[in-house]
Nucleic acid binder design. Structure first.
Lengths: 140, 140
DNA sequence: TTTCTTGCAAAAAATTTGCACAATG
DNA sequence: CATTGTGCAAATTTTTTGCAAGAAA
C-alpha cells in the first residue's frame, strides 16, 4: 500500500496541534514517511540513530504516542508483544501477517465489514472499531 | 456460550500428559471450569487465593501455560495488554468485546471464515490462524 | 524416595515517567 | 525568555524463571 503522506504532512498536523517541530521529531517523521512497512518502536529507533545518534528510545515512544493522539498514525498490537505503527492516511484495511517473516500485507473486504456490522447489530452492539488479522504462511 | 468441560476433564488431560494433579492445580482447574468469562491471570489468582491463600501468581501463570500447551485452553490478547484465557472445548468462535465493561461475547460466522480463506488464497497464503475482534458499545 | 511443583524473589521485555538540562518559537 | 521537549535512569506492568524447600506418585 502506498502512503500519500509525507513528513511535511505530519509536521502540519503537529504544528496545528501547537506542538514544536524539533530535530528528533523531524528525523522520526522522515523515517515514518520514508518507509512503507509496519515498524515497531525499536526498529524506528534503530533507523533514527543512524541519522542522529543522540536520539533516545523514549523520544521515539513519546513521538509515537503523540502522533497516535493526533490521529496521524495507527498502533497495532499483532502477536508477539510489541506495538507496530503505520501512517493513518491510508484508508481502512485489515492485515495478513506472514508468520515466518513478520511481513504485513494489507487487504480490505467490504463484504466482511458488512457482515461484522450485521453481527454486532444482532447482538445489540454498535462497532467502535475492530481488528481482523490473518496469520498465515506462503503457499508453495 | 456454555462450556461442557468440567475440572475432571482438565484433570484427565493433564494426567494423560503425565502431569501431577496438585492442590494448587486443582483449585485453578475448578475456577476455570466454574466460571464462563474470559479471566486474566490476575483475576484467576484473586479467585484462587480465596480458596487457598498460599497459591502464588507464578503458579497461575505456569498452569495457564501448561494448559495452553496441552491444548486445553486458549490465550487471547485483546486490547489492554493482559492475556485472557478461555476453555478450548468450545468450537471455534470470534469475540465481541464491550469497550465499556470488558465483557466478551462470542460469535461465529461461517461466511466470514470463508471470505478470509478466499482472501488469503488470492494473496498466495494459507491461513494458520486468525483473530477477529469487534470492539463495541451497547446500542440503546 | 525420586521426581515434579511450588513459592518467593529476582529477571525479562516493552513501555512510561521524573527530573534537570537543552532547544524551540 | 517562557515553555515545551529531550536524554537518561529509574519506575511500571505483565509474564517468566532460578532455586531451595515441599508435595505427589
Amino acid at each position: 500500500m502506498v502512503h500519500a503522506i509525507n513528513h511535511g504532512e505530519y509536521e502540519r498536523i503537529l504544528r496545528e496541534a501547537g506542538v514544536r517541530i524539533t530535530r528528533p521529531r523531524k528525523v522520526i517523521l522522515e523515517i515514518l514517511a520514508d518507509r512503507d512497512d509496519h515498524p515497531d518502536a525499536m526498529a524506528i529507533f534503530r533507523r533514527a540513530v543512524r541519522v542522529d545518534a543522540s536520539i533516545s528510545l523514549s523520544t521515539v515512544y513519546r513521538t509515537m504516542k503523540l502522533l497516535e493522539d493526533k490521529g496521524a498514525i495507527h498502533r497495532h498490537i499483532f502477536e508477539g508483544g510489541r506495538s507496530r505503527f503505520e501512517p493513518a492516511d491510508a484508508s481502512h484495511h485489515d492485515h495478513l501477517i506472514d508468520i515466518d517473516t513478520g511481513a504485513v500485507i494489507e487487504f480490505t473486504s467490504k463484504r466482511i465489514e458488512e457482515l461484522q456490522k450485521e453481527i454486532a447489530r444482532k447482538l445489540g452492539y454498535e462497532i467502535v472499531h475492530h481488528r481482523l488479522e490473518l496469520y498465515g504462511r506462503k503457499r508453495k
